[in-house]
Design a protein around this nucleic acid. Structure first.
Lengths: 253, 253
DNA sequence: CGTGTAATTGACCGCTCTCAAACGCGGTGG
DNA sequence: CCACCGCGTTTGAGAGCGGTCAATTACACG
């Protein structure tokens, strides 16, 4: 199995102040700008938004973007790479809250409070767009489309969190995880049926609330049943329909 | 064991347009008004907020406040009673998303989308304050305190959803559920160590992702160990420290 | 070519679910 | 007032899924 392409979000910036007459495209790698375009936000508002964007990175694998307890002052959109958010409980066990792919936003759960409630660490080389939250909140009062977009992002995360809450079997959990990953990658223009897992088995296990051994066993059985081909962290969804069927009750579709 | 007081949120409305010189108190039963007061929102803003509040109810036990797929146009604060939100999966199994006590807000997870993504049903006699969302969103652009409050409510729910996601034992889940209930009731002025469960065992089971039989067994064992006294739906937390200890890793404190 | 860490594999155990039946309270009607 | 019924709850026995523990393998890196 040959190597899949690196998961770098395709950069299509034209110019900071580009105006090609029709649509305005700058920093389209930032989830916000893109989503706000879809919301029909006008040009001047987008300009206002963009001036408070700060491109940060790269963060290398293992480097933290923020840690639990750090003062909260910004949310960030992932531009390239994968960010893992997690907490450590008092027993020292790690609970993975989520994996954030290019185009997705981290830090939303910190809005209630002055400090980040979790850790965020880069799993590979990560580039971010940083949005000062106080500033964006002020801007949101002037730009209804932006406020709406923020509400949507927050509301969506509430629903997403419920995904994990169900009492699904290990097979269903893993299938839903892989299908979910596939769809999110596809939405960003990556190959849906062939990609690489940027996270360790242990991370997947801690995310799905399974033992690492169980993850390993299920992946092996999936491969034996022809549902997928696994080689280390390279992944190919071979039996997508069957996987979709397994994941359907979890993803509610 | 004698009957506990009915869970009706104490109504302290003075007048729709009351102004007693110092603080402004009207419809303090609405979570929003109260929270916004805490945010230091000014008087005229509160007036603006209040004019788009609509008191609805009573809903009687078993009546639905809204159903999955209904067009979304409003969020609501519970004023009295308990509301259960839930979804039915394709296998016909009910998944309880949450129980909403007086002072809490329902419908937040509908903001992303045009339709309610779940059902909401009254477990006992329920009174609501209904807030038109389009209108409150517009008002939020003029009133930063209100926008902030909405962000907080949304962000808080994201964190709360994570509670259920952990791989906790049945004992831990139930202890966390009871302690959480107790704290929320206490925050509204109810007795923390003695209250009644407004939901059926089956509802608790569907919420905690346990079998009803397991809920029954754990409650019995808790009683045998002196952690609590159960009589039908009357509940007394007898061994609060032990319960808190069990719940601690779940509630993260 | 050694070493450390992640991943896999196997054996065993325990928690919780499932299935089934009995119980008990509330409601209805005789 | 009592018999009957229905549903939520409780109780019991058994089984299965996934966790735990331990050993082995595979790979990455120096």
């Amino acid at each position: 199995m040959e190597r899949a392409m690196t998961q770098v979000f395709p950069r299509t910036d034209k110019s900071i102040v580009a105006d090609d007459g029709d649509a305005l495209h700058f920093c389209s790698t930032c989830a916000f700008s893109r989503a706000c375009l879809d919301e029909g936000m006008d040009k001047s508002a987008l300009m206002d938004l963009h001036v408070l964007v700060e491109h940060v990175g790269p963060f290398h694998a293992g480097e933290h973007v923020f840690r639990e307890g750090d003062p909260f002052d910004a949310i960030a959109a992932v531009r390239a790479g994968t960010v893992k958010t997690y907490v450590i409980d008092r027993d020292g066990r790690e609970h993975v809250l989520g994996f954030h792919l290019p185009g997705e936003v981290i830090g939303l759960n910190a809005i209630d409070g002055d400090h980040y409630p979790c850790n965020a660490v880069a799993l590979d080389t990560v580039m971010l767009c940083r949005f000062s939250f106080p500033k964006i909140a002020v801007l949101a009062t002037r730009v209804p489309g932006l406020q709406r977009q923020l509400f949507r992002l927050l509301s969506r995360d509430i629903g997403r969190a419920a995904l994990l809450a169900g009492d699904w079997s290990a097979d269903q959990r893993l299938a839903a995880f892989l299908i979910g990953l596939s769809r999110r990658l596809a939405a960003r223009g990556f190959s849906p049926n062939r990609f690489q897992l940027t996270m360790a088995r242990t991370d997947i296990a801690n995310y799905l609330r399974l033992a690492p051994e169980t993850v390993s066993r299920v992946l092996k059985r999936f491969q034996a049943d022809g549902l997928l081909k696994v080689d280390r962290r390279e992944l190919e969804l071979a039996g997508r329909p069957a996987l979709e069927a397994l994941a359907a009750p979890v993803l509610r579709d």
